[in-house]
Nucleic acid binder design. Sequence first.
DNA 1: AGCACGCCGACT
DNA 2: GTCGGCGTGCTC
Length: 655
Amino acid sequence: MIVDVALPIPAAKTFSYTVPDRWKPFVEPFMRLKVPFHNRIHTGVVITVGQGDDPGLKEILEIIDFFPLVDETLAALCNWSSRYYVTPIGLVLKYALPPTLNVEPHVMLRAHDHETLHLNGLTLTKAVKLCGREALFRLRQRGSISLHDVFTGESFLPVSGTSTDDHTQQNRLFIGDVRSRLNHYLESISSAIDNQSNVLMLLPDHYAAGTYFKRALTERFGDRVLWYGSGTTARSRMETFHRARTQGGRVVLGNKSCVFLPMRGQSLVIIEREEEDEYRNEQGFKFNAGTLALKRAALGRIPVIVGSASPSLDTYRYAEYNGFQMVKNKWLLDPESREKITVAGLTSSAAFLEELVPVIKAGLIENQRIAVFTPRKDYGSSLMCHDCKKPLLCPDCQGVLGYEKEAGRLTCSLCGKSFSYEEECSHCGGTIIRFLRVGAEYVAEKLTDYFPDAAILKITGDSLKREMRRLKKSPAQSPLILVGTQSLSKLYEFHVQQLVLLGWEDLRKMGGYRSDEKMVQTLINLLDALTPEKILFFMERKHRMDMDLFMDMEGLYRQALGKRQEADFPPYRRAFLVEIDKKGKDRGDKTIKRIRDILHEEGLFENSESMPVLEKSMAQKWRLVLRGELEPLSRALLKVYGLPHVQIEADPPHI
DNA sequence: AGCACGCCGACT
DNA sequence: GTCGGCGTGCTC
C-alpha cells in the first residue's frame, strides 16, 4: 500500500510512502499522519491511497486522526483553493488543519467492555500516552471503546457538512444599509436554526463589526451564537469546533479561519461586507475568505447571503452570473442623500486646515460628533526633496513612501517595507524633505493644536482595537472629533452629525485597477456606519468630482464591469502577479528564462507575441503580470511556485 | 520550510 | 593552508 502525502512545504508536489501492515486497515484520504522527511518527522495529510509496493520508499510512522477532520466539501474546497490561489495543497491544508486545532485534549474515551474499563473517562491525549495510538485504533475498530467530546458529550464521529435541504433560503445578494442587513440576517438565521441546521457567518473583523453583530445576534439567539477564530481563548475555539461539528441550530461567526470549519447540517452561509480587505489573508496561504466562503457554499449546495452597502464588482458579477436573487434594499448615494452633501473646492491640498477649522469649531459649539476622513493613515506622503525636487521612493519597489512621525519611519505603501527616516535626499543630500499629501496622523496633530481641549480620537487600522474601548465610553451628547481612514467605516452604527472627507478623490490615484471601485465603497461604507446628517467634501479644485455620477447604482456597476471586460481584467479574467527577486548573481535572468520555459511547456503563450513581456524592471525585482483562464495558468504557475526568489500573488490589487 | 552541499573571502 | 559566508537544490 502506497500513500501520497501532502507536506506543509512550498513545493507543489506530494510525496509517496509505504504503509506498514499494522496501519493498513486505518488509512483514508485526508487523515493526518507522521512521516519521516529529510531526517525529521513531519505532519502530512494523505491525498491518495494506492495499491502496490516500492521498497525504495520510506514507511509512514503513525496515523494521527481516527478519521478525516475535513468532510468532502472541505476537501474539495482545499483542492480548489490550491489551484485558485496557486498554493501547494500542503500549505492550504496546514491552514485548514492548523496545529492549534487541539482536538485530542477535548475528546474522551468511553469503555465498552471489561478489558478497556481502565481507559474509561480518559482524554484521548492521556490514553495515547498510556497505551499508544495503534492500540487505540484497534480497540476502537472492534468496538471496545468509543470517543466523545467533552463539550457536548456526543459521539466524536466524522462530520458530514451536507446541506439540510432547506428550500426556504436561496442565494441572494442583499444591498442595503447596516440596519436592513442586520434585520435580513436575523430573519434568515432564525428560520435556518429553527430546523436545527447550522449557519456560518463571515464578518470583516473581531473588534468592531464582530462585536456589533455578536451582540445583536446574541440578544436574539443567546448561546447558540459562537465565535470561531483568533481573539478568543484556545479552549473556547475548540468548544466552537466541537459544537459546530456535532450540534445543530448554531450560528458560527468568524473572519477567516472559519471558512474551513467543519459543520454539521449546514443550511446557510452569510458574508457581511465581502469587499472588506480584512478578508484577505496575507501570510503563508494568501486567500480571500469571502471568495472561499462563496465557493464553499457552492460546493456544498448551501444557500448563501452576501450583504453589503457597496458590493465589489467581482461579487456583483458572480451573483448575477450565478442567478442570485438581487435585492436592492437601499443604495446609500440615492437622491435623498444628495441633499446632505456639500462639495467645497480647495485651491491646494495644503489649504485645507484653514477651511476645516471653522467647520470643526462650529460643530464643537453645537456638541456635535464629527468624523474627519482622510485616505492615508500616516503623517505625510509623496515625499520630495526641497532642493532637487526629486521624489523619495521605496528603494525596493519604487513605491510611494509614507512618513509615520510617531514611529519615526518611512513605510512603502506598495510593498509594506519600513525604513528609518533619515531626513536626507538620496540624490543630492538635501535635508529639507517636503510632503505633498497629508494623512490622519498629521490632521489629528494639527486639530489637537487648534482644539487642545476637544476629545480627538485617531481611528486607523492599527489603533481600532484600542480606540473602540474609549469610544464606547464616550457619551452621545458630548462633542467628539474622530480622525481616521477607511477604518472609520468599521464603527457600525456610531452616529455622527457631520462627516468631513479630506482628499477622498485621492483614492482614485492610489493605484490599481480597483481604485475607482474602492473609492465608491469607502464612501458608501462610511455613510453606512456613521449615518451622518451632513456630508462635507473638501476636494482639490482640479480633481473635483461630480457626485451625481454615483447616484445611479446599476449604471455605475454596469459601466465599471463593461470597462473591466473590455480591458480583459478580473472578474472576466484571472490575474496573477509574479515577482522575481534580483538577489541572485544573474539578477534573476535565469529564473525568468525558466519561467518562460515552464509557461511554454504548459502550452501557454505559444507564439512569442502573446508571451508575457516583463512588465516592469524595478530596483530589486522583476514584475510580471499574467492574465488568462484559471486552469492552464494555475497549473503552470504551481510549477513556477517552487523556484527560488519567486513570489506569486493571485488577484493582486496593485496592478 | 529546513538542511546539506558547494564555491569564494579573511584568518591562525 | 582552513573556517564560514550564503546561494542553490532536494526532500518520498
